[in-house]
Design a binder for these strands. Structure first.
Lengths: 240, 240
DNA sequence: GCATTCTGAAGTGTACACACTTTCACGGAG
DNA sequence: CTCCGTGAAAGTGTGTACACTTCAGAATGC
């Protein structure tokens, strides 16, 4: 064992391959794009971004190509990669599609979820509710998403989960602002519980209608939230 | 003008940049993956594929990364890119999601489509029906998809269209086999017309129910079609 | 004979090189 | 003053090089 240089000698390792750079880089850029850390329509400088992330342009470009398909980045040939535009109609479109998928979500969950999973869902949300004073909008948005994704997962349809996650990433910015509204915040807690109750009762139609009420409200407020969102992006976090 | 070498001197051009390789390569590999020209779970050799397509590995890898997000290719770190598995449960999942999105499709179309677009839709499908004798399963599948995509487009929701197209690419293989069934073929023509009629009458509920019948049937037959699909992939096109 | 280790080839992951395109500032002509 | 070339710098698109990983099969030890 003494003489076998298993991985590396103690000596200088010149750059032993970063191991899975693309996935790290992908996650990092995704996070930035989701949070609009690039301004809408801003060109993304590959060299600069690569330097920031400590890798070469190759994994950066591979990650960006993934994000193009996800709809978080756009690509203009011979010009480069750009941050997605802040497109109000597109966001409305995503909310519409999301509503349809969330409907499927509760339908499947009402039919297929085990009692245990439904009980866990209620426990989870009661836990969030109990801690709500300690949570900022960021964390609460995350819990909100988790609630919906759990329901989707209970339906046993992994593709549904994937698509909802992808849509959530693209509208998270708006939803986080919505959730800052104290009124909306309160109603969200009750609406989630109503959905969970309907699932527990295996009342598919009621679950659909609760979900529909829950999602439906937000479309109306979305425009206001988007306005605020635009202001945040361009004016920084100064104005509360 | 005489002295300005605008693009290239007449002299040998060593390889003047293939211009938009990634998009060409992406489309090519996508087509191959959709048609299962790679066997399920088969590792995709990058050098070989690059040579076949006449480019280097760089654009090939960028295209493959896009296809991973689309769900047509999987990536195992340090092993390489693989053809997606032939997963019956996943295909069922996709059919379920598709049904939910097609429902949204007709709902939106019934509300928002112009009379002209609806009339064009009927003309389009009557035209297909008239030519049906001259069409093979491949072409008919394409027209079938176009019918559904037109409805989605009429609803004015581009994201819905995108997602349906993405799902269609992943289940096209199964649907093409379904359409080969002469019985199914006949019913499809009538069902499409019934949907179009309901849209023309602006009868949203009837449109939903027609669409639901139309899609619902296929889930039941999907398993049989998948069996046949597996045989095709592994035994070639010999056995009809 | 069987398990284990070694070894080389094949292939992926990433950095880098270089040609081409775009962009922008500058300067001259109208 | 505006408008159009012009040229250089910046930046993208793709080919290539090379280190590392994996895998299969031979060689070795028991």
């Amino acid at each position: 064992m003494a003489g076998t240089p298993r991985k590396k000698p103690i000596k200088s390792a010149p750059a032993p391959r970063a191991a899975d750079s693309v996935n790290r880089v992908y996650a990092a850029i995704q996070r930035m794009a989701v949070n609009f850390e690039f301004r809408p329509e801003q060109r993304i400088n590959e060299v600069e971004l690569a330097a920031t992330l400590g890798v070469s342009r190759t994994p950066v470009r591979e990650a960006l190509n993934r994000l193009v398909i996800e709809g978080l980045i756009t690509l203009v040939p011979n010009k480069g990669f750009y941050c997605r535009p802040f497109d109000a109609e597109q966001i409305i479109s995503l909310f519409e599609v999301r509503a349809a998928l969330e409907r499927l979500s509760v339908e499947l969950a009402a039919e297929r979820a085990s009692d245990v999973r439904i009980a866990e869902l209620m426990d989870f949300w009661n836990g969030v509710r109990a801690n709500r004073a300690a949570m900022d909008a960021e964390e609460l948005t995350s819990r909100d998403e988790e609630f919906h994704i759990r329901i989707a997962a209970m339906g046993g349809n992994p593709e549904l989960v994937r698509m909802l996650e992808s849509i959530n990433a693209r509208i998270r910015f708006v939803r986080r602002i919505e959730i800052e509204n104290p009124l909306r915040r309160t109603t969200t807690f009750d609406e989630h519980l109503a959905i969970a109750e309907a699932l527990k009762a295996r009342d598919r139609d009621r679950a659909v209608s609760c979900m529909s009420d829950h999602i439906g409200i937000s479309v109306a407020d979305a425009v206001a939230a988007m306005k605020e969102g635009l202001a945040r992006i361009y004016m920084g976090r100064i104005a509360s």
